[in-house]
């Protein structure tokens, strides 16, 4: 475990929603990310996966717990350490339309990080050209504006911007969800190539389970602010333990009309994270719910080697 690049321990992020009410968006999540691996994070909207990503990268202050990056608590960094952290950790956003300033040229967008961290050393234009070719664009594109590009090209610009400061760890928050299928594959291949060539570590947040399985070494499944299962991606898909993971996997439509499967269709909707059920958050929709599930929260434990789950079914 010594080469854990990121270590998240019992991380909590609560939002105040007026009066004494708190929305527990992330409620006690723990996991580690090894150097050079891709950890996928899946879950439905409102499960807290984006908040988790944003808290790790310090876009949000934490409410409790800690995030260690190379052994240092990121929410306690001060002075120069903050600058270094901001270089080491970068983010790629979902909507390449909304995350690029429409009034800046591509060159200025990509070089913004270089300017802030004083990294260009008089080679600004050359660096931008290099980054553009790295993500499969041309140096002629540098003087254009974001609206002149297609969605897939814009996402490449967002990736070039993240790479400009030579990060070690990239948080990609639904980087391909806004793209068409034929373009998604282009961007995913690019991310994989960059990881291989530069030893990058990814936290890949998405709701498209088949793409997450494709890109991730390990996958964490979140439900209502909690991690419910975490395992190597093959193990998770071959033997999902948590009833929620099982339902989630069986809900994914398979592009093959000859396969007729029994789907586990969950009843009802996700409860509001501001008003969670007692005990296990999933018990209101769980086909296997027992009496105990309403009384106590399940414990996060290692059910099989490297396969973690939080469910009373596995507490024996």
């Amino acid at each position: 475990m010594t080469d854990a690049l990121v270590e998240v321990r019992d991380l909590k992020k609560y939002f105040s929603i007026g009066g004494d009410f708190e929305l527990k968006a992330v409620d006690g999540v723990s996991f580690t990310i090894q150097k050079g691996e891709t950890l996928g994070l899946v879950g439905e909207s409102g499960c807290g996966k984006s908040t988790l990503g944003r808290t790790i990268i310090r876009l949000y202050e934490n409410t409790g717990g800690e995030v260690l990056f190379k052994g240092k608590d990121v929410h306690q960094l001060r002075g120069k350490e903050v600058g270094q952290f901001n270089r080491d950790v970068q983010m790629i956003f979902q909507d390449p339309q909304a995350s690029l300033n429409p009034r800046m040229t591509v060159e200025d967008i990509i070089a913004e990080g270089l300017d802030i961290h004083r990294l260009s050393k008089g080679m600004r234009r050359e660096r931008v050209a290099e980054l553009l070719s790295l993500v499969g664009l041309h140096k002629e594109h540098a003087q254009r504006f974001p609206h002149e590009f297609s969605g897939g090209q814009r996402q490449r610009i967002g990736i070039a911007r993240a790479l400009a400061v030579e990060p070690e760890f990239i948080i990609a928050d639904e980087p391909i969800s806004a793209l068409d299928v034929s373009i998604q594959a282009q961007v995913v291949n690019l991310l994989e190539d960059l990881q291989r060539d530069r030893g990058l570590t990814y936290l890949f947040i998405a709701h498209d389970l088949s793409m997450v399985k494709h890109i991730s070494d390990r996958i964490g499944v979140m439900y209502l602010g909690k991690m419910v299962e975490l395992a190597a991606s093959d193990a998770l898909y071959a033997r999902p333990l948590h009833p929620y993971t099982q339902a989630l996997l069986s809900s994914v439509p398979v592009p093959d009309p000859t396969i007729k499967r029994e789907r586990i269709v969950l009843q009802g909707d996700l409860p509001s994270p501001a008003n969670k059920p007692s005990g296990c958050g999933f018990r209101t929709r769980c086909p296997a719910a027992m009496e105990r599930c309403a009384q106590a929260e399940p414990i996060w434990k290692e059910a099989e080697a490297g396969h973690w789950v939080a469910c009373h079914l596995f507490e024996g």
């Binding site: 034929s182 594959a185 291949n189 399985k213 494709h214 398979v254």
Partner: peptide
Amino acid sequence: WGLMRSLPRLDEGEKQRLVPIDGT
């Protein structure tokens, strides 16, 4: 063909490289 090849599948065994449709 391109559409079908560019999709990753949940039941894919060995990890394979996706085959995108180049261009726009």
